[in-house]
Design a protein around this nucleic acid. Sequence first.
DNA 1: GTTAGCAGTCCATGAATGAGAGTGCTAACA
DNA 2: TGTTAGCACTCTCATTCATGGACTGCTAAC
Lengths: 365, 365
Amino acid sequence: MQNDDELNLSDRKKQILLSAVEEYIQVASPITSSVIQQKIVKDLSTATLRNELNALEAMGYLKQLHTSSGRVPTSKGYRFYVNQMMGDIPLDKNVLEEIHALFNKRTVYLGDMVNEIASVISKATNYPTVVMLKGFDKLIIKNIKIIPLLTEQALILIETNSGIINNTMEANKSIPQQSYIDASNLLTSTFKDKTVAEMLKDMPSHKQKMENEVKEFSTIFDTVLFSLKSLTERLSQNGNITAKGEIKLLSIPEYENNPEQAKKVISVLSNPDEIKEVFKDSTADNGGDVSFKIGKEIPVEDLQGCSIAKADYQVDGESIASIGIIGPQRMDYAKIASALKFVVGEFQNLKELPPANKKEANKDE
Amino acid sequence: MQNDDELNLSDRKKQILLSAVEEYIQVASPITSSVIQQKIVKDLSTATLRNELNALEAMGYLKQLHTSSGRVPTSKGYRFYVNQMMGDIPLDKNVLEEIHALFNKRTVYLGDMVNEIASVISKATNYPTVVMLKGFDKLIIKNIKIIPLLTEQALILIETNSGIINNTMEANKSIPQQSYIDASNLLTSTFKDKTVAEMLKDMPSHKQKMENEVKEFSTIFDTVLFSLKSLTERLSQNGNITAKGEIKLLSIPEYENNPEQAKKVISVLSNPDEIKEVFKDSTADNGGDVSFKIGKEIPVEDLQGCSIAKADYQVDGESIASIGIIGPQRMDYAKIASALKFVVGEFQNLKELPPANKKEANKDE
DNA sequence: GTTAGCAGTCCATGAATGAGAGTGCTAACA
DNA sequence: TGTTAGCACTCTCATTCATGGACTGCTAAC
């Protein structure tokens, strides 16, 4: 149906509509016929433009806030703009470098990275940003270490193809260090190149065999399993979800004098379950990696004045992490799309790069 | 001078003043003579109370927003209230348990803990909360481990008397694992029971001796030192400062219809340098562990309508971490004081408890 | 020292007004 | 048929003004 409409649009109407949306995104105040004449279609009179605008309104791409106001895009208008918009806006070079540096610190804990990515993107786009580690248990195990601590606890450290996962577990002081080393090696050799999820699933069936190989493995086994289960539950169920930059909403014209509305949005952002609801299953438009939900397309009442953008980092068709941005419908779609694409690209590099980073080391000499 | 005034206050004036402040903290609207009569001093007429209020205003404890409004406390009025206020309000039991549980996970990384503490306190008090890890390098080293990873990096893990510090470092693959183990042991035996700061200071002078004991120590030494230096710089200079719950300001009457003001406060909170400025050197009032700066006592213009509370976690007279709460002058001082005291108490336990925690383990059976 | 009573002050609310900005429509023009 | 000038109309926004209500300050009496 969208195609039908688009076919009906004359080139002139398309031009007017697209530039009107673009202009509105920049200036945030309703677009009038005279603005269009001054900035865009200089060789037509305002009266003619009014006729065109009237037609576009009748088709549902634009609307007036009141009889004598200029026009603002409808959800349909934004959607048309997003579908047509091809050119990405290159990001600021400093921002690109900051993101790149972030991904270059490959040993970083996944939890930290989620925080940092959200911060950086929020800073780059000036919108609240959400990062969700969802299918992190689909990451591929490369190495497992159990490190006993001075307290009656130990650290489980799992190196994956995409960062480090860690958690603590109970550790009985009476078990000799060597048993932990043996257990680590056994776990590594058994589950290397499997996913965390597979490891959790398969561990019980390996129990008997493993117990024969490592002394005291039975005790270690139970605590490892318990610790990993609680970790994956914590991360997967409630999701490891971070929102950053909620406060930026307050500086956006739409919310500046409307703290009520801002509070509604922020309260959605402070509830992981709602975030999940908002960002679940969206399909990428435009053939790209970035999908948008615009206005009424969002399945949550309080957010229907907003738009959201989302990009997924996928491994073997499985989404490991999602990055979402939320803002007013009048958001800078082009800029956001290019920011998200860049970050997803960095994720991809992370996965594909050989595990060892050379250089960078001797820069302190 | 405060004492002079306090001596001049009749018991009745004291009672009126204290209850007026308390009432205002609860209801957030100016206190009138009739409110006082209805709720507090039932056996006096409003006219008499007006005389008393007038006197209190002349002494600078109360002020009117305009001629015919009720009265609100001045900074001096709040200060009097805080100095007199002895009774702490017990916190909600669930909150106590949540904080306690947080401290019980003793292996938690300090960085995470800062985040979590800020979140919990902000939730408990309903005010924005700041946690600053300042003199973390004064923590006492108990154990050092260097753990080589699959990438050309290694993890430095330092167990202290109060949590774990970790950072990554470059690691040369050509160095055998055993060298890292030896280096770890050497570092531990050399610096055990010293502070991180002392370790950094003394390392260079130990270099020669250490190089003799462990093969390839020279290379390891440099990267360890470099890594720790950059970690302490990151944590100490800019401070490891987290603010949480800034958004709660929007639900406080003082800011509800005044997003401008809220934005000013929030912008201070998003700047670590300003946070440090705001929370530096305050001395605890009231003989307790919690200090308040009230209104004009705050050395930052944009915050003079606010009050801040601060508590320090000290080790040997050295402040390791500070926890700060910011809110309107009309904040719930009693509740905040007891929240902060509780958290500092938990910090103290952390330090004093024997290193091994028993039990808690078998609750999954 | 306490109180009743009254005048005075200030805020908050809502109505009335006018200027300004844009549009829709009609009629004329190319 | 598409374009344009011109005018009437609509709606917002800011300002002004009047009214009611909530308190206080003060005075005079107890």
